[in-house]
């Protein structure tokens, strides 16, 4: 999960600041040792360094090198190529740059559709499950099940369902509903994009439901009672209470969903294998392909660094825009 620091840090730091001086005195007397918090953090810091921070720096370093298969065992010998890898990657007229641009476009579309549908399904189900009725607990459990399934088991089931001749999807669409004359392919060609979005929404929307359910539970029931007494109907309550109260939750949720879907590797990899169809060539798969099939790690790293920069910019702009709108309101 991610960057919830902005909304979460506010109240925490304020409370911390108020009683800082008294707390400091007390802490020094009782706990004594200044190193205690650092000792407690030590393992977490080492692991973060080893698995996240150092690899990230190494990734930037690699992107500046001509790191091809000849240098895997002796990587420090790889020649320095400056921004050469980036130049190749960003030249959208070359095959490499052109494919990358295409892949970015596909990913953006995939991400937008996934986030949109996941949120829509999540808020709909969340609001409809807000008031108790018979079978509510069971339904909630059912809805959460896809989120609990391991990605590969769920996606492999979908790939069975999406088989052209033996799959359940074509059985329903062609044999039972007669929507198509001939059986469409779902795992190759243009339709593969649709399949990818459907599978991804199926897998991810329960997470939206989970977060929104948690958010809905923090809205005090008296608000609805007061609104009902004032004669506000279901839609009015949704518009004037539920959605505004969920705003901080939505801000974080949409960002998380966006980052997840933009970085998604599991869904396309299990659905199509490491060679995704052109129409469903998500950026993670694309970089994976470019790096491990040709063993050109320098180029793959340059693409990863560009992807990271892109995500950082989008996140920063998003947080800036949404936080300011919230403060204005």
């Amino acid at each position: 999960m991610t960057t919830v620091t902005t909304p979460a840090a506010g109240p925490g730091t304020a409370a911390g600041g108020k009683s800082a001086s008294t707390k400091k005195r007390r802490r020094r007397r009782v706990k004594g040792n200044r190193a205690t918090p650092y000792l407690m953090l030590l393992l977490a810091i080492i692991l973060e360094l080893l698995v996240h921070i150092i690899p990230m720096i190494t990734g930037v370093w690699m992107s500046l090198r001509g790191l091809t298969q000849f240098y895997i065992r002796n990587w420090s010998a790889a020649p320095f190529v400056g921004l050469g890898n980036f130049r190749v990657t960003l030249d959208f007229n070359s095959p490499i740059g052109g494919n990358l641009a295409h892949s970015l476009g596909v990913t953006a579309g995939y991400s937008a559709l996934t986030v949109g549908f996941c949120w829509l399904f999540g808020i709909t189900a969340g609001v409809l499950l807000q008031r108790p009725f018979r079978g509510r607990g069971l339904l909630r459990t059912v809805f959460l099940a896809p989120y609990a399934l391991p990605a590969y088991a769920a996606v492999i089931t979908w790939s069975f369902m999406l088989q052209r001749d033996t799959g359940a999807v074509n059985h329903v669409l062609v044999d039972e509903l007669h929507l198509f004359h001939s059986r469409p392919f779902w795992l190759i060609g243009g339709n593969s994009f649709v399949s990818l979005v459907v599978v991804s929404v199926w897998r991810t929307w329960p997470f939206a439901l989970l977060v929104l359910t948690a958010g809905l539970q923090t809205i005090p029931g008296e608000l609805y009672e007061a609104a009902a007494m004032d004669g506000a109907g279901f839609m009015r309550q949704l518009r004037s209470i539920t959605l505004p109260m969920l705003r901080p939750v939505n801000q974080v949720l949409l960002l998380v969903l966006f980052l997840w879907s933009f970085n998604d590797f599991n869904t396309p990899y299990v659905l199509f294998g490491s060679a995704a169809p052109h129409a469903a060539d998500l950026i993670s798969i694309h970089i994976y392909q470019s790096s491990f099939v040709t063993w050109n790690f320098g180029l793959g790293s340059a693409m990863s660094v560009l992807l990271l920069l892109f995500l950082l910019v989008v996140t920063a702009v998003y947080l800036y825009a949404t936080s300011r709108r919230r403060n204005d309101a």
Binding site: T3, T5, H52, I54, P55, T58, W75, F297, G300, L311
Partner: peptide, 22 residues
């Protein structure tokens, strides 16, 4: 806190190649 949280948004593919090399 901020560093640890922001590592969550980084694409896995970014760590994969360097971690492999490391």
């Amino acid at each position: 806190s901020i560093t640890v949280l922001s590592t969550q948004m980084f694409p896995g593919i970014l760590f994969l190649l360097p971690l492999f090399l490391i």
